[in-house]
Structures are given as structure tokens and as C-alpha cells.
């Protein structure tokens, strides 16, 4: 009897989202009760900020075309990790040498630690991510182009 009632509630698709959101809220509440969680201090890719660098807060640890040491999970799998981190395009190299305010725009230029992680050491993530975007756009443009 109770199973029939549960399946009756579930069979209405309007009810599924509130059910799931309620479940999430309960699990998050349990999470709050289980705090504090210990933070593991020996993290991968630790962040260092050098306030005096002209590239602050994304200092790359060396001039372009030199290799810096990166604390990755399996360094032996990425022998050239560290080159992308130090790379600057000629334009941003010029800006970095003339101004102290390049700041966070540096993230947009090719090269840097974020690019190193995204493209090189954790490249598989970045393969899946544009694929999700690709699939979502395929759905949207299929629906858009179809006759209503």
C-alpha cells in the first residue's frame, strides 16, 4: 500500500525536483552537523602570492621558456610540465615589463599555471568540459532550428 502511494508521488514528474532538492537540503544539513572537517595541508598545486611581482597574483616563477617545478600528482607523467606555466606571449611580456598592473588579465593570455593545469596535467577534464558544452549547444540549436 505504501509502495503504491510512493510510486504515485514519483510518477508525477513535477514532484521529482522538490524531492531531490529536499534530499540535498537534508544531506547538506547532515554535513553542517558533521563539521568541522580537517583540512589536509599538503595540497597539490599550492598557491603562492608574491606582492612585489609585476604579475601579482599570478606570478609564474621565471622568465618564458624555462621550466619551473610544479607539484602535480604524477610528475613522471608530464615531463614538460612547467614550461607552459612560465610562458608569456610577446605582448604580455612587454606589458609585464612596463607596467605593474597587468594583474589578473594575465589569466586570459596563453600560458600560466591555470593553463598548465587545464590543458596539460589535468587535460582530460578539459576534454570532457567542452564536450558537455558541445552537447548542450547541439540540443539547443536542434530545438531552435526545428519547426515549432
Amino acid at each position: 500500500m505504501i509502495i503504491r502511494r510512493i510510486s504515485d508521488v514519483l510518477s508525477n514528474y513535477e514532484n521529482i525536483l522538490p524531492l531531490f532538492a529536499g534530499g540535498c537540503a537534508i544531506v547538506f544539513l547532515i554535513g553542517v552537523l558533521l563539521l568541522p572537517l580537517p583540512y589536509y595541508d599538503d595540497q597539490l598545486y599550492p598557491k603562492t602570492i608574491d606582492r612585489n611581482s609585476s604579475l601579482d597574483p599570478y606570478d609564474r616563477g621565471g622568465p618564458p621558456f624555462t621550466q619551473v617545478v610544479i607539484k602535480s600528482q604524477y610528475p613522471e607523467n608530464s615531463p614538460t610540465a612547467g614550461y607552459v606555466t612560465t610562458y608569456l606571449t610577446p605582448f604580455s611580456w612587454f606589458l609585464a615589463n612596463t607596467t605593474h598592473h597587468l594583474g589578473t588579465t594575465i589569466v586570459a593570455h596563453p600560458g600560466g599555471i591555470i593553463d598548465e593545469i587545464l590543458y596539460n596535467t589535468r587535460g582530460l577534464d578539459t576534454v570532457v568540459e567542452p564536450t558537455i558544452l558541445f552537447i548542450a549547444f547541439a540540443i539547443a540549436s536542434f530545438l531552435f532550428r526545428r519547426e515549432p
Binding site: L124, V128, I132
Partner: peptide, 17 residues
């Protein structure tokens, strides 16, 4: 896949497909 974040991305891809 043997990476946790990669696993979550693949699962999200399954959801959208």
C-alpha cells in the same frame, strides 16, 4: 576514469545526453 573530478564531469555529461 580514475580521477574523482573527471568522474563527476563524465556523470554530468551522461545527465545532459
Amino acid at each position: 576514469t580514475g580521477d574523482l573530478f573527471n568522474f563527476t564531469l563524465f556523470v554530468a555529461l551522461v545527465g545532459i545526453t
